[in-house]
């Protein structure tokens, strides 16, 4: 009968210890068996994934890396290598500085708020009260909607002419306010919208964290006469540290790459005043026809996000261990 499975998936009767003793096995085969048992042999399991990554992410990524050393316009067949000119231009461009600050506001700011509110909501919806499932669903639903659509929904709320929020403002003051025009304000609005959308994910992560904490801890604490405040900081919070790590890393990466909401609300404007690295890169690439500079910006963004996530991962893990 032909084999259905490659040998490494067959059940290995002969591996049972009692058989090992009785059967006389040639040395060579035993060595191979040891190899089969060694952890290294398990690494085949990630080979399919690794192959996909190599072909569809890392190969194009390194090709893209090279674009940053050219003066390519993003579409023609003509391109010249110009060394690190694009990087020089990027670093001396004052707009890029604004955009980096904006990106940090979007990334770090929304991560902060998502986690604070996510935790508060999780505490609120963990045990008490009726209809908590309903509230959970409501808080989570925005995460389901496509971000570009979310941007448009908020545009309906925020727009100057006939925007829902301005209807209320007009009712009180008689005059609408152009909320999205002022770069001092619109950057924060975008941050709030992103927080609103993905708050639900942080909440779910904390909720599941809370449900994994054994009641015994609290009962013991209660016997010791700990206040609720004490209980939170001495039991709940430390035990949630791993949940916090997951939540922070996912939110950070998402926030630092923010694109759709900005595109829908302000398109990065006025000028580049509310742009993030993603939206500026997009505009440089397609509208400005400055693909070389766009690619440099992309690489900067890659470095920035890597640095921030690794640093936070390092501190968060250390905190986890020290608890």
């Amino acid at each position: 009968m032909p084999r259905f499975l490659p040998p490494w998936l067959e059940e290995r009767e002969e591996m049972k210890p009692d058989m090992m003793v009785t059967e006389a096995v040639p040395r060579k085969t035993a060595g191979m068996r040891r190899l089969a048992q060694s952890p290294v042999m398990l690494n085949w399991m990630y080979l399919p994934a690794l192959l996909l990554f190599a072909v569809f992410i890392y190969y194009p990524f390194f090709r893209g890396l090279l674009i940053s050393f050219t003066d390519w316009d993003g579409y023609s067949q003509a391109l010249h290598y110009i060394g690190i000119d694009n990087y020089k231009r990027m670093l001396s461009d004052s707009r890029v500085h604004t955009v980096i600050i904006n990106t940090l506001i979007y990334g770090v700011g929304s991560t902060l708020f998502q986690n604070i509110f996510g935790l508060l909501y999780a505490l609120l919806l963990n045990k008490h009260g009726k209809g908590k499932t309903f509230v959970r669903v409501i808080v989570y639903i925005p995460a389901i909607v496509s971000p570009i659509i979310m941007g448009y929904i908020w545009y309906f709320l925020l727009q100057y002419n006939g925007g829902a929020i301005n209807d209320i403002i007009t009712a009180f003051t008689g005059k609408p306010v152009n909320l999205l025009a002022d770069p001092k304000v619109n950057v924060w609005i975008i941050m709030v919208v992103n927080t609103y959308q993905f708050l639900g994910i942080a909440m779910m992560i904390f909720l599941s964290g809370l449900q994994g904490i054994s009641k015994d801890y609290y009962e013991a604490a209660e016997m010791d006469g700990a206040t609720p405040f004490n209980r939170f900081f001495n039991i709940t919070f430390p035990l949630l540290a791993p949940a916090l790590t997951t939540s922070i890393i996912l939110n950070l990466i998402g926030g630092l790459k923010l694109f759709d909401v900005i595109a829908a609300l302000t398109n990065g404007g006025p000028g580049y005043a509310s742009a993030s690295l993603s939206t500026m890169m997009y505009q440089l690439y397609f509208a400005r026809q400055d693909a070389g500079l766009a690619a440099s910006l992309g690489n900067l963004m890659f470095l920035l996000i890597t640095a921030i996530s690794l640093t936070s991962l390092y501190f968060l893990r250390r905190k986890e261990l020290s608890q």
Partner: peptide, 14 residues
Amino acid sequence: EDVLTAKRSDLPAA
């Protein structure tokens, strides 16, 4: 007045 934040697609209605 909202020139900075208006969208082209709102022009027909206006």
